[in-house]
Design a protein around this nucleic acid. Sequence first.
DNA 1: TCCTAACAAACGAGCGATTGTTTGGCAAAT
DNA 2: ATTTGCCAAACAATCGCTCGTTTGTTAGGA
Lengths: 221, 221
Amino acid sequence: MNRAPVRQPPKTVSPSLRQTRPVPKSEAIPFDRRQQILVEAARLFAAKGFEATSVREIAQATGILAGSLYYHFASKEELFVAVHAAGMEILIRTAQEAIRDVGDPWDRLAAAAAAHCTALLESSDFMLLVVPNFPKSIGQYRAELIHQRDAYEGIIGDLVSKLDLPAEIDAKLFRLHFIGALNWTQTWYRPTSGLAPAEIGRQLVAMLRPFPPSGVTATVG
Amino acid sequence: MNRAPVRQPPKTVSPSLRQTRPVPKSEAIPFDRRQQILVEAARLFAAKGFEATSVREIAQATGILAGSLYYHFASKEELFVAVHAAGMEILIRTAQEAIRDVGDPWDRLAAAAAAHCTALLESSDFMLLVVPNFPKSIGQYRAELIHQRDAYEGIIGDLVSKLDLPAEIDAKLFRLHFIGALNWTQTWYRPTSGLAPAEIGRQLVAMLRPFPPSGVTATVG
DNA sequence: TCCTAACAAACGAGCGATTGTTTGGCAAAT
DNA sequence: ATTTGCCAAACAATCGCTCGTTTGTTAGGA
């Protein structure tokens, strides 16, 4: 793509991408333009993909001009990283809340799966682009994105490690396939027809459970 | 300055995925420029994504100029559709060969899974872009791509329908999650470390098998 | 065996549009 | 007086694509 005169010098990439930005001190509406940009960018990235979305589109959706975007974000790529981080934050919080009060390891995994699907398929647009493999042209920020993603997958990994899997099942591969099936739902899920997101997640766990729980089985519907 | 068919090395490319195009009258080996473009486009699309790959890049990789591309393909999007079709053809053929001599339904699914992963992770670049959700800017060709994909997923659906699944497992959801886990492998698979593609696919079936086969268990490795 | 017309396949300049980004200025708020 | 947030206008680069031209090869007629 373009990227203008390749300008490397400044390179003040904040590691936590916590853009130090003055908090409006007035008690008026905390009308956060930066947040607004994030929302619109997430929606457009999700709908059209990263490369196919222009900064002018994002700006227009936000109600500002293209150039004004660069007051809030150093580049289009850093904007993407910020959206990705916000999405991962939502995902992590959702999962942790879902498993908080569940004891049985398999039930905890099912709760996490349900939460994952719900957040993925029903919640904001922040995740529709977080899940698939991110744009190749993200280049230098790749490591940061992977780090953000690992933070979440580690949670799933912990849940999996508590399961009593058959000896011939590799826990790591189990986690990868599990997350894969969950994340893939966003390529086929349509909100109008079929099962609800939470049930889609729960049923995946039911399929993977080596020995279905004795007693009452879940009522599907 | 080469005009006319430049005789390059034999370059025996897959004779299968061919489209209607003027067949050279001489019985000499037809050096298929169109096929060459498909290969290079697949490689670049896989490496950088559709939108991030320019027609000039594809042309340069093929050894021609950008304008010459349009003699073979009407547009960049039609080129993508052709690459997608070629990839799906490979996938379908691979799967059908893999299950041909297998009888047991679960073993047939395992064979298909192994073949899928092998083609996906080891074979040509034709599939690295086939699997994830295709570029949003593909627009008018979306229906055609989905049709191509459905042709393959129907094969998997047939295999799943022959399984004796527990009553509480929905066959359709089983198929979706199964394909999802398979396709997601390409986001995390690295050829150097870990299991081989075929084993990754087989183990997924092992995880999903409600009652592991009695008698001898599969020798892993 | 030559001439000629047709054809296939590529060149290469350049079109208009769009890309991400920079810059200077300006009104309001601090 | 300074900072904040944005506008307006450009910037260079690149995008997909068109089109007239040019070349090597082939077929047919004389």
